[in-house]
């Protein structure tokens, strides 16, 4: 069963007199439980694809269907709500709320979903334990290492029980040990809980762990290889 399905996705930018096709007629399907990497050189269109799939950017043409729902027709507020309930995000720069603790950061998305305090506490503790940060719950981002912050970000992305997680260059700011540790956690969640991960990355270490690697070039799928 496909979680994500794109058809003839096109995204065009205008730069002066020139028209640049960042994504050019991309059609792909991502099944539930995939651990997929979208890779390619800078400017190949991988980040634009992830933005469109994540409902952060509109395609010029084509469609994006997530769990049988066409998201390109959703209004601004509907799209925000859709993201809140269906998509988890992991960013390159962690992007945690600096004034909140690790526990509060993880619980924040559930709070937006309207979950009860008891439910939030239970899931937050469960997730922080899963990413190995049960002892760091009360620490603020500035009191944690980059690797720890990114693990909190992963826990936050999982907190809303999303359909899939979009991770944009999640290891770009991490050292080798933290990268391996983070990938172990993500791979374990993928294998044990069937969580769908889609990465955009240059990092060979991430590519090596992927079950499916989609390579982009000039806005098109250059290759699509499953392990």
């Amino acid at each position: 069963m496909s979680v994500i399905k794109t058809e003839n996705l096109v995204k065009t930018y205008t730069q002066g007199e020139y028209e640049i096709k960042a994504v050019d007629k991309v059609s792909l399907e991502i099944e539930k439980g995939e651990f997929t990497v979208v890779c390619g050189p800078s400017g190949s269109g991988k980040t634009t694809l992830l933005n469109i799939i994540g409902g952060l950017d509109d395609p010029t043409s084509g469609s994006v269907v997530i769990n049988d729902k066409e998201i390109t027709s959703l209004s601004g507020n509907q799209l925000i709500d859709f993201r809140l309930r269906n998509i988890g995000f992991v960013f390159q720069a962690y992007n945690l709320i600096p004034v909140l603790t690790a526990k509060e950061n993880v619980g924040f998305v559930m709070l937006l979903q309207g979950k009860s305090e008891a439910e939030r506490n239970e899931r937050t503790e469960e997730l922080l334990k899963a990413v190995g940060l049960e002892k760091e719950m009360k620490k603020k981002p500035t009191q944690m290492s980059g690797g720890q912050q990114q693990r909190v970000a992963v826990a936050r992305a999982l907190a809303s029980k999303p359909q899939f997680i979009l991770a944009d260059e999640p290891t770009a700011n991490l050292d080798s040990a933290s990268t391996e540790n983070l990938l172990d956690i993500m791979a374990k969640m993928n294998e044990e809980e069937g969580i769908t991960f889609i990465f955009s990355t240059h990092d060979q270490r991430v590519i090596d762990r992927a079950k499916r690697v989609i390579t982009f070039q000039d806005g098109k799928i250059f290759s699509d290889v499953s392990a």
């Binding site: 709500d81 995000f89 960013f91 709320i97 809303s160």
Partner: peptide, 8 residues
């Protein structure tokens, strides 16, 4: 980030 994760 807040807008991305679903804060309206």
């Amino acid at each position: 980030m807040l807008l991305c994760v679903g804060m309206n």
